[in-house]
Design a binder for these strands. Structure first.
Lengths: 240, 240
DNA sequence: GAGTGGTCTAGACCACCCT
DNA sequence: GGGTGGTCTAGACCACTCC
């Protein structure tokens, strides 16, 4: 999140100060939504710093979505700035241990299956392909924490063929063995089905928090699709 | 013709090329998790560019969480890189209209209340304080989309006293009238209570997706707390 | 065509932290 | 102490795009 400091121009010393001062002016509506800011050279002169310092400051604010910058068009105050939230998705093991709880892991099953239609569609796969399906449970202080139901396309990740996932979860294994890649997440509320109620030790139909994640490699092939179903009462928190 | 170049750095032109090359090496495990990279000056010499260009590239990768950079300590490959996700939180009206649906809004009630204990705790307020409570419904193509239950501390946002929220939702009003600020979000799965089932036209106990947001001003005072309860089946999606 | 931001360079100084 | 990244400067060229 961006912080706003109060200061006068004589104390401007570094791009963070420029950032703070610009934010202050946006905040105070000195520059209103839709307004055009002075250009970088003018601001540099006003603040008594180099243009590149102003550039860095304005870029950082534009990255937050508050300014819109265009060559030739100048820098404008965005009218309806979306709030932007960034959050980390830690490895489940780390997430649990950060809370000071004892992490545990249990493999439920590992098998080759033709994925059901809905999974196939999400992974954009042809019919008939078999995938590695791994179901496992992560526990915190011996209590069910999250159920991991993962589908891996081994034609994209051949190394997964030999991983047995008996002591290391697919979650952790993939982070270590598959490089940086893109994807998307979908968060929903679901009703516990029978499998989930057994694994998570709750009644069926209880409301559960579910996170589905699709991970793609550098050329866009779907590596893995996972549904994480959390134990009742789970809260996913994000700082803005 | 196909050629495996040893490393033709003559093609490196701007910081994006440096970034790409470094990512390639991380990907190819040329620099493995935990490894120390050459320092910026050495990389600059290798790539034939200025140190600041290397700096920019490495910073961008560090921002993604893949590298850990320290003065004196150098640049290291992070062992368990957290996946970082950034998502926009659009104004609900915009979110609905972006899907090509007709946005509608209905104020359910607007009243002064002493907030229940759980709300008071979330907002870190003293007992006895009255807040402006606004309940409203956002619809998409005439169908219930999300129920907004908002608490506003008018001692922090005096202007809210005179807003009637009859045609403009608190969600939209606040974005336009209160400057950007920090806060946090909690996402959960809940069971529909009676109010929610009526407003969202579903049975009680149905699993619903809930997003609670706390918004603070520049000095840390809680401006507003809102719970958004979405109609059954809602999916919140995030790109990585 | 011209004005804007985007970026690069070379050099410099500094803050931080320590295999 | 000394090496590292963090940042600033001044100048330069370029890409984009608005008029």
């Amino acid at each position: 999140m961006l912080e706003i400091k109060h200061l006068d121009n004589s104390t401007i010393n570094g791009w963070l100060d420029v950032q703070a001062e610009v934010l202050r002016r946006l905040n105070a509506r000195i520059w209103k939504p839709g307004d055009l800011l002075p250009n970088e050279a003018e601001l540099a002169a006003e603040f008594g710093c180099a243009r590149s310092t102003v550039n860095r400051a304005l870029q950082s604010i534009a990255d937050e979505g508050l300014l819109d910058r265009r060559r030739r068009g100048g820098t404008r105050v965005v009218v309806h700035p979306d709030r932007k939230a960034t959050f980390n998705i830690p490895v489940i093991k780390v997430q649990i241990e950060q809370q000071g709880l004892a992490y545990g892991y249990r493999l439920l099953n590992r098998r080759w299956l033709r994925p059901p239609k809905n999974i196939r569609e999400r992974m954009q796969l042809d019919a008939g392909i078999k995938l590695l399906n791994v179901r496992s449970l992560h526990t915190a202080d011996q209590r069910a924490y999250v159920l991991e139901n993962r589908w891996i396309d081994v034609s994209v990740v051949p190394a997964a063929t030999t991983a047995d996932f008996k002591v290391q979860s697919p979650n952790e294994w993939l982070v270590e063995n598959v490089p940086f890649s893109g994807g998307d997440i979908a968060l929903t509320a679901i009703h516990a089905n029978e499998d989930e109620s057994i694994a998570l030790e709750c009644d069926t139909h209880v409301a559960l928090f579910s996170a589905e994640r699709r991970t793609r490699d550098a050329i866009g092939a779907t590596i893995t699709y996972v549904q994480l179903v959390y134990a009742p009462g789970y809260r996913m928190t994000i700082d803005l």
